[in-house]
Design a protein around this nucleic acid. Structure first.
Length: 974
DNA sequence: TACGTCACG
DNA sequence: GACGTACGTGACGTAA
């Protein structure tokens, strides 16, 4: 949404042929609002709202907001609103099915048609409609007339059918996406320039409008054909030359249908205009009439806005810096709903939901001066609770710039403090941007931080956040150690982990029956995405203050449930203290030897090229090895190496187990493909991608640990995932060597030995296994001795391997099939192993049955420390799916308890290190391993402390053992 | 966006 | 007798 992508503006300014147009200059520009289209889209996009008398008005509100902003932004431009007149029009004369089967408009929409016409009149804008023609035809006609008169035109609509009208002097603006549509955007949508859009539509058809098109041809194919042949007629004339037989036949058979379709979509530029073009000039609105109308709808905040603006110069002025005033380019999106809860009682738009968020009033305030901020801080001290949310220009908190802070002291009362917002006009939608950018008034960040520091560090004021780890880091970087902290996301995770996600939007839907303003509606998506510092203040206020508001509401609702559900201890001892600990780890980041990675990348590239040559030679043809589809066809259809197994999508499976089997049969191509796969994976996922993740600010890589993502209580790591750095293969180890210590430092890696199997022994109370662990035996060998009845002295590696596989299998909720596959033996044979295992360790069987029964009864399982893991599938009727849930039920308490123990250790770690005077920094957690960076001289001491803390993570009947390694890089330390 | 694949625990 | 299988993650490339 930057000025340079505003195609419509560019188009308007390129009207040199007609000469006179200068947008915003002489006031001759014309905005044609597609009223009919807007009604439907606004109705479906906005939450349902009703007037005090019960009349639904959500589309009317959206429409009024849109007009208001359009008038503010468009300055002296002329604005006309165009409507469809009747449902039947001239198109039905030659194609009766056109727009047939279209359902009646919803009941809640019907009364709004008339209101929207009233709104238009209240705004003193001309209403254009003409019997027998659609709004689109009128728009096309006025666009032509204006263009001929040298007046630049902007069509305000989201309707793709109008895109055919884009040309020099005629642009479009999508009021729902707040986005200018020019030739580039049209090309993006249809794959052809605007003048060929109708040809593409004629082929592709449109199921919504009942435009038939040619069966089997979509937009992509149509664009390709039109580009190749020039236009529809040329294509139809040459249809017999199409290569693809099916396509050729369809084009010949449905040629006439395509011609009819073209007539249906082609807009009529020559309808009789109901009003002369010259009458479409802006008139001074009748303020009182407008205010009366808006007030009658219950649009209180719009009314006050209008009243305020009218006082200025009798017109709706540009409000850059003014906060609640619309600004250039900030055309309405459904963000219009932000003040909406205040304007009218929220009615429920989805019948399925019974609960409704009753918001008698929300007050969101924009804070632009220090005194106002101090008042918020005072208020927080009175209430003792403060919801806090930060807005930044990036999702990497270790390096992001703080753009603003929102606060909420009680439900419905929130503020937003912009700190680093850029001038609104600078990069907002350029289409309607005529003023020089003026930066908004903001409290200097340092001053705001100084004021906030007092309350954020005040031990008597609880700070509530949603995913507060993020905010914690930002404040830490500004010298503020926020404490104490509560996190509504983590509370939800502790209460209901495994049953649903814990993002704020999802929880707001679930618990408050409310849909927060989506981020993408504020910042857009894809290449048009803007950073939050470019968001106009009114939108930023609506979005950010709402986040703080919702956070506080969720906290109010969920926090007491910790007591009710007896989950206080889990939350207080495991997850809540983790917030500052993990925030510090993320902020620390890990050093990467970029040169080593780029050398590896280069070497991998060369080897990949070599292997690719080999594979193509062995295949006898060139193909994309990275495409499982092509590879499968080469292996099993062309080369006929065996029959091949097909998956549920009908594609051959080519995973490593399949390729390994082929390789064993002596097919060298399979081994080469396996080599290629391994190297390609390492290159794309690690050596290439990791280099990109090195922060230019810190020179290090900062992962994000998700604290509420897994079903078992584990953390996960994203962007980049540093919990799956290669370690098993020699090639992989080279990547791990690129994780290095800072100069003068060492990396220290400490990992739990066999923690999950120890926990199986503990929780199932397996005496023989516990004894083996207490005696410090090689646990897999000891297992083998027990299960296969072989003395330890006679143990062979192969028997030990089998026992090891069974031990792992137990943790996964063993099955004969899975174990058999792992060991490459028949499922029957594997079942025999399992049977023996369960006889030797009979306590295990009892525990597994009890655990499954508990899961069935309660719908969740619990870890040793009381964490619940919900398993929605446990009541499944489908046997396979239920079996899956049962295996999860076995695995979750084991994996989850290990995760709990690791969290206990992590929470104690900073204190233990500090108490010992160690300056070791915790960098990463990989489930059973912690990685530290420590000054060389302190490494041995740190290793001892860390081992002690980890081994003391729980005091059980089996010992916990942690093993340490020290090195210059991660591979060496591991 | 869904799928197949594969990196880790 | 048939079904569909080891548990937990995240990222990549391809194909649609």
């Amino acid at each position: 949404m930057t000025a340079d992508t505003a195609g419509a503006t560019a188009a308007s300014e390129n009207t040199t042929a007609t000469g006179s147009a200068t947008p915003g200059g002489d006031g001759s520009g014309l905005y044609l609002v597609d009223g009919s289209g807007f009604i439907f889209r606004a109705f479906h996009a906005l939450p349902m709202l009703t007037r005090p008398d019960g009349t639904p008005v959500n589309a009317v509100l959206g429409f009024s907001n849109m007009l208001l902003k359009l008038l503010a932004d468009a300055k002296a431009e002329a604005v006309a609103v165009v409507f469809d007149s009747k449902r039947l029009n001239f198109r039905n004369e030659f194609y009766p099915d056109y727009k047939a089967h279209r359902p009646e408009p919803p009941e809640e929409l019907k009364p709004q048609f008339a209101l929207i016409r009233e709104a238009t009149e209240a705004f003193c804008l001309p209403c254009l409609e003409l019997e027998g023609f659609e709004a689109d035809d009128l728009i096309a006609t006025y666009a032509r007339l204006a263009q001929e008169a040298g007046r630049p035109v902007t069509i305000v609509s989201s309707d793709k059918d109008l895109m055919q009208l884009v040309r020099p002097g005629v642009g479009m603006f999508d009021p729902m996406k707040n986005k200018a549509i020019g030739p580039d955007e049209v090309f993006e949508k249809f794959g052809v320039p605007p003048e060929k859009v109708v040809d593409v539509q004629a082929l592709a058809g449109d199921s919504v409008d009942n435009v038939p098109g040619v069966p089997g041809i979509g937009v992509k194919t149509a664009a390709q054909l039109i580009t190749e042949y020039g236009d529809l007629e040329a294509l139809l004339a040459n249809a017999d030359k199409i290569k693809q037989p099916a396509r050729r036949q369809k084009l010949i058979e449905f040629a006439e249908q395509a011609r009819i379709s073209r007539r249906l979509v082609l807009l009529d530029e020559n309808v009789p205009p109901p009003k002369p073009l010259d009458e479409l000039r802006v008139r001074e609105p009748d303020h009182q009439r407008l205010i009366d109308f808006l007030r009658a709808q219950g649009f209180r905040s719009i009314v006050s806005r209008v009243e305020m603006e009218m006082q200025k110069d009798g017109r709706i002025a540009d409000g850059a810096g003014g906060g609640s005033i619309p600004s250039p380019g900030s055309l309405p999106t459904p963000a219009a709903k932000s003040p909406a809860p205040a304007e009218s009682p929220a009615a429920e738009d989805r019948p399925a939901r019974k609960t409704v968020l009753h918001v008698p009033e929300v007050r969101y305030e924009l804070v632009q001066d220090a005194d106002t901020l101090r008042r918020w801080v005072e208020r927080a001290r009175e209430t003792g609770v403060l919801a806090v949310d930060t807005e930044t220009d990036s999702l990497t908190p270790a390096t992001a710039t703080l753009v603003g802070v929102s606060l909420s002291t009680e439900p419905g009362i929130a503020c937003y403090i912009p700190l680093a917002h850029k001038a609104e006009g600078a990069a907002a939608a350029g289409q309607l941007d005529f003023d020089a950018p003026t930066p908004p008034v903001q409290i200097p960040t340092d001053e705001a931080m100084a004021i906030l520091k007092d309350v954020l560090e005040d031990r008597s004021v609880l700070k509530v956040g949603h995913n507060f780890k993020f905010d914690h880091q930002l404040f830490a970087r500004n010298g503020i150690a926020v404490s104490p902290v509560d996190d509504s996301m983590l509370i939800s995770y502790v209460l209901e982990g495994g049953s649903h996600g814990h993002g704020m939007d999802e929880l707001a839907e679930l618990h408050l029956a409310y849909t927060p303003i989506p981020f993408k509606e504020v910042c857009g998506t894809g290449k048009n995405q803007i950073t939050f510092d470019r968001v106009p203040l009114d939108k930023a206020l609506a979005y950010a203050a709402e986040d703080a508001d919702i956070t506080l509401r969720l906290w109010t609702l969920l926090k007491p449930r910790l007591v009710d559900d007896r989950m206080v201890t889990v939350y207080e001892t495991l997850d809540r203290p983790l917030v500052p600990v993990v925030a510090d780890m993320e902020r620390a980041g890990v050093r990467i030897d970029k040169t080593a990675l780029s050398d590896l990348s280069r070497s991998l590239s060369e080897r990949l090229v070599e292997i690719e040559k080999d594979v193509h030679a062995l295949a006898g043809q060139s193909f994309n090895i990275g495409s499982p589809k092509q590879l499968g066809e080469i292996l099993f259809d062309t080369l006929k190496l065996g029959t091949g197994k097909k998956g549920k999508t009908g594609a051959y499976s080519t995973d490593s187990s399949v390729l390994e089997e082929l390789a064993e049969q002596g097919h060298s191509i399979a081994q080469r493909v396996l080599d290629w796969r391994q190297l390609a994976k390492l290159k794309s996922t690690y050596t290439d991608a990791l280099q990109e993740k090195i922060s230019p600010v810190t020179g290090r890589v900062h992962t994000a640990f998700a604290l509420a993502a897994t079903n078992t209580g584990r953390l996960s790591s994203t962007d980049p995932n540093l919990q799956n750095i290669p370690v098993r293969t020699e090639e992989g180890k080279k990547i791990r060597r690129a994780f290095v210590a800072s100069p003068g430092h060492k990396l220290l890696s400490v990992d739990y030995s066999q923690i999950e199997l120890r926990l199986v022994a503990e929780m199932a109370n397996i005496q023989a296994l516990k004894d083996a662990f207490r005696d410090g035996l090689d646990i897999h060998a000891a297992t083998a001795a027990q299960v296969f009845g072989i003395p330890l002295e006679q143990m062979t590696p192969d028997i030990r391997r089998k026992a090891k596989a069974i031990n792992f299998g137990i943790i996964y909720g063993i099955s004969g099939f899975g174990l058999g596959r792992q060991l490459g033996i028949a499922p029957g044979e594997a079942n025999a192993f399992i049977k023996t295992y369960l006889e030797r360790f009979h306590e295990l069987k009892v525990w597994m049955e009890a655990t499954k029964a508990f899961a069935r009864q309660h719908g969740y399982v619990v870890t040793l420390f009381g964490r619940r893991c919900y398993m929605p599938g446990i009541q499944e009727k489908n046997a396979a799916r239920r079996a899956f849930a049962e295996r999860q039920a076995i695995n979750a308490p084991i994996q989850g308890t290990a995760a709990d123990i690791m969290k206990r250790a992590m929470n104690r770690m900073p204190g233990a290190l500090a108490a010992a005077g160690s300056s070791a920094r915790m960098l990463l957690q990989v489930h059973d391993e912690l990685l530290f960076e420590v000054p060389e001289a302190e490494a041995e001491d740190a290793a001892r402390i860390v081992r002690e803390v980890m081994e003391g993570g729980a005091h059980l009947g089996v010992p916990l053992v942690a093993e340490a390694g020290i090195g210059d890089n991660w591979e060496e330390a591991h």
